[in-house]
């Protein structure tokens, strides 16, 4: 799978990312690096421990990373989780986490298929 195909598969715009980051080789490298990023594991740990601050920090960072990498839906779902844990632990946190988990899984599976 090419990098363009990966972005198409998650309904995101590769050309938008390229216009911002300019360096095509870098984009592939960063996307592959995302595979090993520790923030999602930290988010899962936060969920298990019901640690509001940990969830907020991890989802905030995932949101930023996803925005930078142009993973549109992952950024949007992480942003919702982030807001739901900013000041208090909202009721719908588990549901919002599931949405992030779904997007994260999609991205991870696609990265595995990258050339």
């Amino acid at each position: 799978m090419t990098i363009e195909e990966l972005y198409a598969a998650i309904d995101s715009d590769y050309n938008e990312v390229l216009s911002r980051l300019i360096n095509a080789t870098l984009i592939v490298r960063l996307v592959k690096l995302y595979k090993n990023d520790a923030n999602y594991a930290s988010l899962c740990a936060g969920m298990e421990e019901r640690d509001r601050e940990k969830i907020f920090t991890a989802s905030h960072t995932i949101k930023g990373l996803a925005l930078n990498l142009g993973f549109k839906d992952l950024a949007a779902t992480a942003a919702e989780l982030c807001e739901a844990t900013r000041n208090s632990y909202a009721e719908n946190v588990p549901a919002l986490f599931e949405a992030v988990a779904g997007e994260q899984k999609k991205v991870m599976d696609l990265i595995d298929q990258l050339d």
């Binding site: 360096n23 960063l30 690096l33 995302y34 930023g64 990373l65 930078n68 990498l69």
Partner: peptide, 10 residues
């Protein structure tokens, strides 16, 4: 995040 640092460094 090392990814964010790499983007800025680049």
């Amino acid at each position: 995040s090392d990814i964010n640092r790499m983007i800025l460094a680049d």
